[in-house]
């Protein structure tokens, strides 16, 4: 089981790099759909078959793999934006930073005092690396839709991290988190549409007038 999980986690890291280096919004959304679908298998792989894990896997797959990408594709169609031309920070430097962050999270999780069961798997380093990728995306991208994708990757990192706790966490909490995620994406899509209508762009640097 662990080997399959580790393989999946490594694929997640690959997809992180892909998103960091790609400028096309469409392919980014597709990637995030694939990533979401992959990590939705993790509960089953990590903890075996039970009602709890199967429910979680199915719910995560429906949300992360299907519903949210569908919403995002709709948003991209509505605002007629195909790609991010001028990020705040270039693609190659972002990729290098992402690599460094991933390496750092592997080194860091080696030094954490984990229990033996967890130190065998890649859950902790990949979770941290995905968190860092989400952060990088949020910091360096200008288009609001990429911000949403960054947020989703961030959430994926937390989901991977949360796998370690699936046994301990009540089902209620997990379903609440997933539902929150769906609602958040809903709202962001709506807000994005409004921004487009108001400023005829979805670059978030138009949003600085809200400061004091």
């Amino acid at each position: 089981m662990n080997n399959t999980a580790n393989l999946l986690l490594l694929l997640v890291v690959m997809l992180n790099f892909f998103i960091l280096g790609s400028s096309r919004l469409g392919s980014n959304i597709r990637t995030i759909a694939i990533q979401g679908g992959m990590i939705s298998l993790l509960p089953v792989l990590a903890h075996g078959f039970s009602n709890h894990t199967i429910f979680l896997a199915v719910a995560a797959f429906l949300l992360k793999g299907i519903a949210i990408p569908y919403l995002l594709f709709r948003a991209v169609r509505q605002v007629h934006i195909g790609r991010e031309i001028e990020p705040l920070f270039g693609y190659v430097p972002t990729l290098i930073l992402g690599t460094l962050a991933t390496a750092a999270s592997f080194i860091f999780s080696d030094r954490l005092p984990l229990i033996a069961e967890h130190s065998q798997t890649l859950f902790v380093p990949v979770g941290l690396a995905t968190l860092a990728t989400g952060f990088l995306l949020l910091i360096t991208r200008r288009k609001a839709i990429n911000q949403v994708i960054g947020y989703l990757i961030f959430e994926n990192g937390i989901f991977i991290f949360g796998m370690l706790l699936t046994e301990a966490m009540p089902l209620m909490v997990e379903s609440g988190v997933l539902l929150d995620l769906l609602v958040a994406v809903f709202i962001m899509v709506i807000v994005m549409h409004q921004i487009k209508r108001e400023f005829s762009t979805i670059n978030i640097d138009q949003l600085t007038s809200l400061k004091e």
Binding site: F135, L138, R141, I204, L207, T208, K211
Partner: peptide, 14 residues
Amino acid sequence: FHQGWLNVYLLYSA
């Protein structure tokens, strides 16, 4: 520190 750039605020959190 407080210039209204969302990215910069996220950088602070990071």
